[in-house]
Computed example of a mutant assay.
Amino acid sequence: MAELVFFSPIKAAQLTRLPVFTCPVPAGFPLPGVGPADEILDLHQYLFGQPASTCLARVVGDTTPGVGIHPDDFIVVNRALTPSDGHIVVAVLNGAHSVHRLRQEPGRRWLEAVGEHYAPLELHAACDLRLWGVVTHVIHPLFRKRSGVA
């Protein structure tokens, strides 16, 4: 199961504003040259639209690679959102935090790992479960540092 390492909220002094090009960037054929940025993206506002209820957590484990969440990625978790069927959630099951896809049908609820090595966790009334928050974004590098390589 994926474990989480939580981080304190970002301070206002650490806000990041980045230039954004409004022209589309195709994932296929290149476009002609692009000029200066058209607008500024407040990365803090984009990721933490509700800063009082949003935090970062680092994922440890491998239950969610099927949705693009990998070990050592950061996830943005919003505790103010109401989890619904299909959401990726941070669940606290028997005191342990984990990341899963929430599945719900009338009279039935379960947590689904999006990794191939884990069975779904059926949730019964006797389970000590809290849906702690909804994962809204994933932050991960495209290239990971290899240990021992400069």
Results as ranks from 00 to 15, higher is better:
49 G>Y: 08
51 P>Y: 01
51 P>K: 01
51 P>I: 04
51 P>R: 00
51 P>V: 05
52 A>C: 05
52 A>K: 13
55 C>T: 15
55 C>Q: 13
56 L>E: 05
57 A>Y: 02
58 R>I: 10
60 V>C: 05
60 V>H: 03
61 G>K: 06
62 D>N: 14
62 D>Y: 01
62 D>T: 12
63 T>Y: 11
65 P>W: 03
66 G>L: 05
67 V>H: 01
68 G>Q: 08
72 D>F: 11
73 D>M: 06
74 F>W: 07
75 I>V: 15
75 I>E: 04
75 I>Q: 06
75 I>G: 00
78 N>M: 05
79 R>Y: 07
79 R>H: 09
80 A>C: 08
80 A>T: 03
81 L>G: 01
84 S>R: 14
84 S>P: 05
85 D>A: 15
87 H>Y: 08
87 H>D: 15
89 V>D: 02
89 V>A: 02
90 V>I: 12
90 V>Y: 00
91 A>F: 00
91 A>W: 07
93 L>D: 04
93 L>Y: 05
93 L>C: 02
94 N>I: 09
95 G>A: 09
95 G>L: 09
95 G>P: 08
97 H>Q: 06
97 H>D: 09
98 S>G: 15
98 S>V: 04
100 H>Q: 15
103 R>A: 05
103 R>L: 04
104 Q>F: 00
104 Q>H: 01
105 E>K: 12
106 P>N: 12
107 G>D: 07
107 G>H: 04
109 R>F: 03
113 A>C: 02
116 E>A: 15
116 E>G: 14
117 H>F: 13
117 H>G: 14
119 A>T: 07
120 P>W: 04
120 P>A: 08
120 P>K: 07
122 E>R: 07
124 H>T: 11
130 R>F: 15
131 L>M: 06
131 L>S: 03
131 L>H: 05
131 L>C: 01
131 L>F: 04
132 W>P: 04
133 G>P: 00
135 V>N: 01
136 T>Y: 07
138 V>P: 08
138 V>S: 03
139 I>V: 15
140 H>G: 13
140 H>C: 03
141 P>V: 12
142 L>N: 14
143 F>V: 15
144 R>V: 11
145 K>A: 14
146 R>N: 06
149 V>Q: 13
150 A>N: 11
150 A>I: 10
